[in-house]
Design a protein around this nucleic acid. Structure first.
Lengths: 335, 335
DNA sequence: TTGTACGCGTTATCAA
DNA sequence: TTGATAACGCGTACAA
């Protein structure tokens, strides 16, 4: 049904080989026939089949991307970074959602293998280390963004969670806070642990012994709801400031404050993590640790391109920045 | 380099045909050889090539999706809806960003054609009507979500902008407002026009002559910034309530209010459009017209599946809902 | 129960 | 300057 070079060949009265050459402006073909063939091709609305080309060339110019959820504002921008760099390099992006589920992530990678993508990028992988053992079977390079699993793995781009968390807590310490809480994320084991380390590092360096009561652990699944549910715990532990696992959690916490008529930052300072757009819109605008999200995607894709060119690459650990807004304030001593 | 059925055939000492059959549990092959071949295949880590299968079967089990920007929270959820339904039906999603740019959208569709996707879904198309004329050349069905161009086109799923806008303005009228502004979007011609129609309908039905001074037109490109920049105009025109083209614009307006020490909703009622997550997080939580975003994506993909089965389909116009929050209040008469 | 031969659309090699 | 042929990995009609 689709127009092929054979159809064109029949009409032009030449062999399909000649058509193939004429369409790529091969100098071996006479200018006359080249023009004639190209005219016929455009009249017929011919489009070359990338499928056939891939079968022959053994590459699909496709990179497979596995994400937990596209609707997550953090993920969305990482994907955007990947897509931009990919498009500029003539690669396309095949997207699969894993719902942060182990089996689905594995199934996704298998699907991508079947489709013979040239490379795979996985954001927030749950099974990172699996890839090194499976890598003999996966010929495509696998690049991990913010891998969520301990253990060995090959190529990765990640944000420095320890440094970021430390930045957040140091900021609160400088404002005079001593009772600083941390709201954990139960479903992001590795980055949660590393942010906790950064939190504790900062406290210890300031000569403060971390108090377990200030570390709030909740099994509530969604980020915002977890933040909302954690306010009571924070207050009960006597926190005057709270560092949250991420922005959505912090936003939930701010919403709970508003409901309880608690004024942030006067009565409670709040710091988030990620730097999503929504931090600009909430009241008060949220002080947060900004991850270079777009850059994360770009670098992952650039690394992928290098790997496809058989170049050496180095794993990346990107630093975060403190973005100062209005949800943190100097602690007021209760007299 | 990759393992093929021929490799397996050589090791098993059978023809590649037998391997092909054994791997799909063809009953014609003896249970013994079937088991043996399957064991060898799994030992070698064999994965069938979807590329070769596609070339033969003339279908790729892929749908191409063109979006303006993945980082847009509205778009992200539409994509999520598409992806969910596609995945359940064994289809994959190939994603391309057009940056809301005409040439890029056309280039994207061409790329998808080259890749022989089975169908194409375009969100917020700028060139919708083009597809009907090009459709003889594109064999794949094209489904449009919230098409942004006037004119004829085939398959579409869209939200009822007129009805939604009317809902918003009727709500403000019920609260006693008479001077109601509308902030336009310069870069979404069609939906902007239709929301304007809904706005005017509601006013006329209430016996109010629309005042051009209340229709704020700004060339600022980004939504939030446009909202921020429009407050002055609204106030100058004597508006006591404003209906905004979308939520991000409304959020910008709320931010400007806060900066000017203007209290919403007491001094200015604000209504948005879309129902993105952020409307829940701002202060005050935004009253808005909720689009069934996930549903929009799901329906588009369901329609696509029907088209692929050669079934008849009907275009969809989905109604919006008013989501009541705290950014709107009864008008206070100035005595 | 298994094998042979062909075709899907394209490109590369070799020959004319 | 052009054409015949083989190959990429797989599935299927037909033959054995």
């Amino acid at each position: 049904m689709m127009v092929t070079i054979k159809d064109i060949a029949r009409i032009a009265g030449v062999s399909h080989t000649t058509v193939s050459r004429a369409l790529k402006n091969n100098p071996a073909i006479s200018p006359g026939t080249t023009r004639r063939i190209q005219r016929i091709a455009s009249e017929l609305g011919y489009t070359p089949s990338a499928v056939a080309q891939s079968l022959l060339s053994q590459q699909t110019w496709t990179i497979g991307m596995v994400v937990t959820s596209i609707a997550d504002p953090f993920v969305a921008q990482v994907v955007e970074g990947v897509e931009m760099v990919a498009q500029a390099a003539n690669y396309g992006v095949f997207l699969i959602t894993s719902n942060n589920n182990l089996e689905q992530e594995i199934a996704a990678v298998e699907t991508l293998q079947r489709r013979r993508v040239d490379a795979i990028i996985v954001a927030s992988s749950r099974v990172g280390s699996l890839y090194s053992s499976k890598l003999n079977q996966i010929r495509a390079p696998v690049v991990l963004i913010n891998n969520q699993e301990e253990g060995e793995y090959l190529y990765s781009v990640a944000v420095d969670d320890v440094q970021g968390a430390q930045l957040a807590v140091e900021h609160l310490l400088e404002l005079g806070h001593r009772r600083i809480g941390y709201i954990e994320a139960p479903n992001r084991p590795k980055s949660n642990k590393r942010r906790l380390v950064g939190y504790q590092n900062a406290l210890l360096q300031a000569g403060i012994e971390p108090d377990p009561a200030l570390i709030v652990h909740s099994e509530v699944e969604t980020d915002v709801a977890r933040g909302q549910a954690s306010l009571a715990c924070c207050l009960a532990a006597g926190a005057t400031a709270v560092f949250c696992y991420n922005d959505l959690t912090a936003i939930g916490l701010l919403m709970a404050c508003r409901q309880q008529q608690l004024r942030a930052p006067d009565q409670l300072s709040v710091v988030g993590f990620d730097g999503i757009e929504a931090t600009l819109y909430v009241t008060p605008p949220l002080t947060t640790i900004t991850q270079p999200r777009l850059r994360l995607g770009e670098i992952a894709m650039e690394m992928t391109l290098a790997l496809l060119k058989k170049q050496e690459v180095q794993n990346c650990l990107l630093p975060c920045q403190l973005t100062l807004r209005e949800s943190t304030a100097r602690m007021i001593r209760e007299t």
